[in-house]
């Protein structure tokens, strides 16, 4: 399996994804600078977290227009799996690869802690090594993770099974109390209609080794390697 991690000016989780991929793949992912639209054919493209372009105008707005993203959109539309985490999710919404938008957290606070997620389905390349309905612990760190989509869009997401993860409590319940940022229906991550693009605010790459306090993020990368190798 070959993977690429796109690096924007202001990305700060690119190395974390690199380490997580290296661990699961047993080989090196390619690090692609955002101006290099002409990168190798790969089986997986990752858009990392961070503060690309300083979050100017809107989070992810500038990156969505960078040269490499035209190529990422074209490949995603051909079916190449794309994983966008945190700022990567914001970039995916800004370039229209996944529906909706990420707004300022409803309590206006930057939220930075481990929390729990309910895995909605495990029949995608991203989640095969989780169980459907499993409750996992994953860190979040964001100021703009309040997922919004209009009523029609929300219904379509729910009807098509495009919700990937929901913010949950430690006991697995999903309610307002377990919602850290005001996201509609506690949505923490969504798929595109074809299911080959996943955008999510939480950071699975930050919890892939025991030494970091947990491994609930690792099955995502192991799933991708198993599906794409």
């Amino acid at each position: 399996m070959k993977a690429a991690v796109i690096v924007f000016p202001g990305s700060n989780c690119d190395r974390d994804i690199q380490v997580a991929l290296r661990q699961s793949m047993g080989s090196e992912p390619q690090m692609v600078w955002h101006k290099d639209a002409d990168f190798d054919d790969v089986d997986l493209i990752c858009l990392p977290g961070g503060f690309s372009y300083g979050d100017y105008l809107r989070c992810g707005a500038m990156s969505a227009k960078s040269p490499v993203m035209k190529e990422v959109v074209a490949r995603a539309n051909k079916g190449v799996p794309v994983l966008g985490i945190c700022n990567g999710f914001q970039i995916l919404t800004e370039c229209g690869l996944v529906p909706g938008a990420l707004m300022r957290n409803s309590n206006l606070k930057f939220v930075c802690r481990d929390l729990h997620l309910k895995v909605e389905r495990n029949d995608t390349v991203f989640t095969k090594q989780y169980q459907a309905g499993q409750n996992i612990r994953i860190p979040v760190a964001h100021h703009d993770g309040n997922y919004f989509v209009d009523a029609e869009g929300l219904k379509a997401l729910e009807d098509n099974g495009q919700v990937a993860f929901r913010y949950s409590a430690e006991d697995g319940s999903v309610n307002d109390h377990s919602n850290p940022n005001g996201s509609l229906n506690n949505i923490a991550g969504v798929y595109n209609a074809k299911g080959n693009v996943l955008g999510m605010m939480p950071h699975p790459e930050r919890l892939c080794e025991d030494v970091l306090g947990g491994t609930d993020g690792r099955p995502m990368f192991d799933s991708l390697v198993a599906a794409l190798s």
Binding site: A61, T93, E94, G100, A101, F148
Partner: peptide, 9 residues
């Protein structure tokens, strides 16, 4: 349409 506004919101 292309940059200055996000017409989703």
């Amino acid at each position: 349409e292309k940059l200055l506004a996000n017409t989703v919101i």
